[in-house]
Simulated scan of single mutants.
Amino acid sequence: MYSSSLAEAPVVREPLHAPVAHLVRGGVVEGVHHGSVVVLDADGQVGFQLGDIEAAFYPRSALKPVQAVAMLRAGLPLDGELLSLAAASHSGEERHLAGTRRILELAGLTEDDLRNVPDLPYDPAVRDAWVRASRPASRLAQNCSGKHAAMLWTAKLNGWSLEDYLDPAHPLQQAIAEIVEDLTGQRVARVTVDGCGAPLFSISLHGLARALSRITAAVPGTPEARVADAMRTHAEMASGSGRDVAALIRAVPGLLAKDGFEGVQVAALPDGRAIAVKIADGANRARVPVAAAALARAGVDPALLTGFAGEPLLGGGEPVGGVRVVRALDPLPLPACA
Rank of each mutant, 00 (worst) to 15 (best):
78 L>P: 04
317 G>P: 02
20 V>Y: 07
310 G>D: 14
333 P>E: 02
287 R>M: 14
185 G>M: 08
222 T>Y: 09
121 P>W: 13
175 A>K: 14
321 G>N: 09
238 A>Q: 03
278 K>V: 02
49 Q>K: 15
313 L>G: 07
18 A>N: 00
247 A>V: 00
165 Y>A: 10
111 E>S: 10
230 A>V: 09
325 V>M: 02
94 E>P: 04
45 Q>F: 12
78 L>V: 04
269 L>H: 09
207 G>D: 01
197 G>A: 08
309 A>Y: 14
99 G>H: 13
305 L>Y: 14
56 A>H: 06
184 T>N: 08
86 A>R: 06
287 R>H: 09
99 G>Q: 02
50 L>N: 01
126 V>R: 14
153 W>Q: 06
34 H>D: 15
287 R>A: 15
161 S>Y: 11
227 V>L: 07
233 T>P: 01
112 D>T: 12
198 A>E: 02
133 A>F: 09
205 L>G: 00
220 P>D: 08
18 A>I: 00
113 D>K: 14
187 R>E: 06
254 G>A: 10
22 H>D: 07
196 C>H: 01
198 A>R: 06
124 P>D: 07
72 L>C: 04
96 H>V: 00
190 R>T: 09
250 R>V: 05
36 S>D: 10
16 L>P: 03
19 P>T: 07
72 L>Q: 07
310 G>L: 11
78 L>K: 12
160 W>E: 01
41 D>C: 14
100 T>H: 06
134 S>T: 14
206 H>G: 04
187 R>N: 02
208 L>N: 00
336 A>L: 10
29 V>Q: 04
158 N>K: 13
221 G>Y: 09
2 Y>V: 06
22 H>M: 05
191 V>E: 00
114 L>D: 05
263 G>Y: 12
44 G>Q: 10
46 V>P: 01
254 G>W: 13
271 D>H: 11
166 L>H: 15
89 S>K: 10
274 A>V: 09
90 H>I: 01
239 S>A: 15
100 T>L: 04
242 G>L: 01
171 P>N: 15
321 G>S: 13
76 L>D: 01
84 S>W: 06
140 L>H: 12
